[in-house]
Design a protein around this nucleic acid. Structure first.
Lengths: 114, 114
DNA sequence: CCCGCATACATCGAATGTCGATGGGAGACA
DNA sequence: TGTCTCCCATCGACATTCGATGTATGCGGG
């Protein structure tokens, strides 16, 4: 039995995809699989979310796509991180950390502030 | 000098508000202030986000509003957590933790999975 | 040889929730 | 009286995710 999945929070998919691509080029289908596998199916990446995300990352110059053949001999679009994308990944990761910290400050507080 | 604020991720405001109200009843304006103060202005709660959130929480039975006078002698709607809201807060907090954990698994991974 | 399955990309409409702008009203204080 | 802060509220724009749906092709079993 797998744990119940959680809906993605808006804005986190880009970070997930950029991070995944930092390990090397990959096509959409495998990106989704890696994320689901790594999180024990807690995060699931629907195709209706993933492909728009990939296109938007490409449009912004953070990734570049190239048609190749997949490991299974199927036509697939491999994406790789650009240097712009690498820097974007860094800032998005930092922002995420800051956000998590800020949330924690509220969630761990036991009393209302003065 | 204050740190640059971060936009809220969609869905996190409800949790923030529920948690804030778990310290006791409060009106909208003060809820926003507490959150901003606790996070050192990292999270800022715009009124265009807060009031819709409050209304939606009330509609779902998680909070109840009552008109009273504020500490400054002004007309204000004080919200308090219902028992339904308290249980909702618990599940939302757990979900948030699970989400953060899942994100961390991807962000801390150094290599692609097998 | 054909059928079904997994792979792989893509698009669409619906739903949701945040943001910035805007507007009002009423107490406090000079 | 005028202005400040408090306090509520609504609006349209915007971005993103989701589920459904559609297409195509390689692979392996019967």
């Amino acid at each position: 039995m797998t744990k119940t999945p959680i809906d993605l929070l808006q804005g986190t998919l880009d970070l997930l995809v950029l991070k995944t691509l930092s390990w090397g080029p990959a096509h959409g289908y495998s990106i989704a699989q890696w994320i689901e596998q790594l999180t024990g199916q807690v995060l699931q990446v629907g195709e209706g979310s993933l492909y728009p995300a990939l296109h938007r990352l490409e449009e912004r110059g953070w990734v570049e796509g190239e048609w190749r053949l997949s490991e299974n001999n199927r036509r697939a679009k491999f994406y790789r991180l650009t240097s712009l994308g690498r820097s974007r990944l860094r800032t998005e990761a930092v922002t995420w950390e800051r956000f998590v910290d800020a949330m924690a400050k509220v969630l761990r507080a036991s009393e209302q502030p003065a």
